[in-house]
């Protein structure tokens, strides 16, 4: 019964959100804005459910006395710190919440992403072999962008940065456009399947 209700809700809201694009009436835009707000509220609540699930999983790890318990304790402490700090001191520029973001979260995120430079390069070095013409084209364009997009490329030749820029702005963008058009058409087809109740894997 609930699944049927859910399918009807998906159909009705999906159809309304699609049709409202072509309509220009106050009541329609009022319902449209309300549905967008509902969407955001449900999304926020879903994120809270996700946070609680993470919290409970780590609490369970601690309760079972596993070796990873210390690390789980760190995760729980970090979650609680951000929430309690925001509740007591707010989220202003000088708050502990913002301090933890600026001095802990942001440096760690930047460092984690910078590590990818090593891993992506080493994985490419170990795994990539030029076995065909297509693979050679990939390797040449990668090298051209790698060398041409920094000061080293400019030292070798003034044309290298220009060539790298041309490659990025024209043939690469052309392929990206082809992919994006494909993604767009695929997304429309999938959205229609969801609205019409053909695609119900989320239930």
């Amino acid at each position: 019964m609930i699944r049927k209700v859910a399918t009807i809700v998906a159909f009705a809201t999906g159809l309304f959100m699609l049709v409202q694009y072509f309509l220009n009436a106050d009541i329609v835009s009022l319902i449209y804005r309300a549905l967008l707000d509902y969407y955001q509220i449900i999304f926020a609540m879903t994120m809270i459910v996700g946070g609680i699930t993470l919290f409970l999983n780590h609490a369970r790890t601690i309760a079972h006395g596993q070796r990873a318990g210390w690390y789980s304790g760190a995760t729980i402490a970090a979650i609680l710190f951000m929430i309690i700090a925001a509740l007591i001191y707010g989220t202003g520029a000088d708050s502990p919440y913002q301090w933890a973001f600026n001095n802990m979260q942001a440096p760690m995120q930047a460092t984690t992403f910078s590590l990818l430079a090593f891993f992506v390069a080493s994985a490419a070095y170990r795994g990539f072999r030029v076995r065909s013409r297509a693979a050679a084209v990939l390797a040449i364009s990668a090298l051209l962008v790698l060398i041409g997009r920094n000061a080293f490329g400019e030292m070798i030749s003034e044309y290298l940065p220009q060539a790298a820029g041309w490659l990025l702005n024209h043939p690469s963008v052309a392929a990206k456009r082809g992919i994006l058009i494909g993604i767009g058409l695929g997304s429309v087809a999938t959205a229609l399947r969801v609205i019409l109740g053909i695609e119900r894997t989320y239930l």
Partner: peptide, 29 residues
């Protein structure tokens, strides 16, 4: 019991995405 709310999110997201995708990903490209 969480499915109707999930369906509202997915349904409205799908409905909004059709004209948006057509405009941004297909026609504009």
């Amino acid at each position: 019991y969480s499915k109707p709310a999930l369906a509202l999110m997915i349904g409205s997201g799908a409905g909004v995405s059709i004209p948006a995708m057509m405009e941004a990903r297909v026609l504009r490209q």
